[in-house]
Amino acid sequence: MKFPSILLLTLLLVGCKEKPKPVVTSIPRPVISADGSRITFSDSVMMRAFTTQPVHSAAIQTDFSAPGHVAAMVLRSGENPSERLVLFDDPSLSDNYTAILQHRINIQTERGNLERVKDLQAHGAASGKEVIEAQTQLANEEAAIISDEATLKLAGFDPVALRRAAPNTILVVCEIPENQFGSIRKGLVCTLNFTAFPNERFAGRIDNVNDYVDNTTRQIKLRISVANPDGRLKAGMFATVEFGVTEGQFMTVLRDAVVTVQGRDYVFIKTGPELIERRAVQLGQQRADRVVVQSGLRENDQVVAANVLQLKGLSFGY
């Protein structure tokens, strides 16, 4: 019979047909913003690997310190013991301070000259033009001294305080973050450790707090006076200034939540169900496995605490 043969042939033909290939779907990749600061995932499942911890302010104790350098030395003048000789580590500041001293002399001279010309005019021996010229000379000197004083103040020095500074004293300039300004005041005692004398501590006192905050760094300059009777401390030396223990409300994050790129510190914040953002932060002292965050975070920010290096690679293209 032919029927079995036909059935067998049909079964063979069906079996030889090509099986359909499985459909391969590509794994969705996160979308990175042009500057790398925003990472958007395709779904919430991919976000599960990046667990977060909310940050809160808490009462802790932290040592507050800042780098500084000896910007000037104050000595007694050999020619005039009542005057102060100030040696700056920056020659341009020496020029400014010398110019201020000369302007002070010139102003006294021009004031005397103006009074003399006014007196001569009152007696008919000088003209109004001569009075105007004398007034102009005085005004020019007063304007010039203001310019030089402003330059010194921007560098952390008060010209009046320099003239009154005790001989055999060094003046250390350091900068502190804006958010630490509340714990700093004039007259505060601090401790300094100089690179040249690592095993010694020197007592200092804050003489001046600058009147402005740097627009770029958000830092405020301080000037600290330190007794230097034996002359061991020299202009240009580097120091670490310790302001003692500060108690207050601080935010902290896990040290492993922080990544450092080109000298700057960052954390990653979950800001949406499928969105993570990079945030620059300024760090303070480290306590065990946590580090104080002085600026860059807000209360209840959700900081990513796991697989942070993966986010670093996505954000910075590493």
Rank of each mutant, 00 (worst) to 15 (best):
272 G>Q: 02
245 V>W: 08
233 L>I: 09
129 K>L: 13
131 V>I: 11
239 A>C: 15
182 G>N: 14
312 K>I: 04
180 Q>I: 01
161 A>M: 14
66 A>W: 02
241 V>D: 13
286 Q>H: 02
77 S>R: 03
110 E>S: 10
191 T>H: 11
215 N>S: 12
77 S>I: 00
290 R>Q: 07
93 L>S: 04
157 F>V: 06
63 D>M: 11
227 A>V: 05
73 M>T: 01
231 G>R: 08
309 L>E: 13
227 A>S: 13
269 I>L: 10
119 D>P: 01
189 V>F: 05
264 R>P: 02
55 V>G: 00
125 A>W: 08
84 R>G: 01
290 R>T: 05
261 V>E: 12
201 R>Y: 08
59 A>P: 04
242 E>Q: 13
31 V>L: 10
316 F>M: 08
49 A>K: 14
246 T>G: 07
233 L>V: 06
136 T>E: 14
46 M>I: 00
41 F>A: 07
160 V>D: 13
237 M>V: 03
222 L>S: 01
309 L>M: 14
177 P>Y: 06
146 I>T: 12
75 L>N: 01
72 A>S: 07
238 F>M: 11
185 R>G: 15
1 M>S: 11
194 F>L: 08
84 R>M: 02
59 A>K: 07
55 V>P: 01
298 R>Q: 11
188 L>I: 12
186 K>M: 08
127 S>P: 09
193 N>Q: 13
245 V>Q: 15
148 D>A: 12
280 A>H: 12
303 V>D: 05
257 A>Q: 02
32 I>V: 15
79 E>P: 01
73 M>A: 07
178 E>L: 09
84 R>S: 02
129 K>S: 13
142 E>Y: 07
11 L>A: 15
46 M>R: 06
269 I>C: 02
53 Q>W: 12
313 G>Y: 10
273 P>C: 12
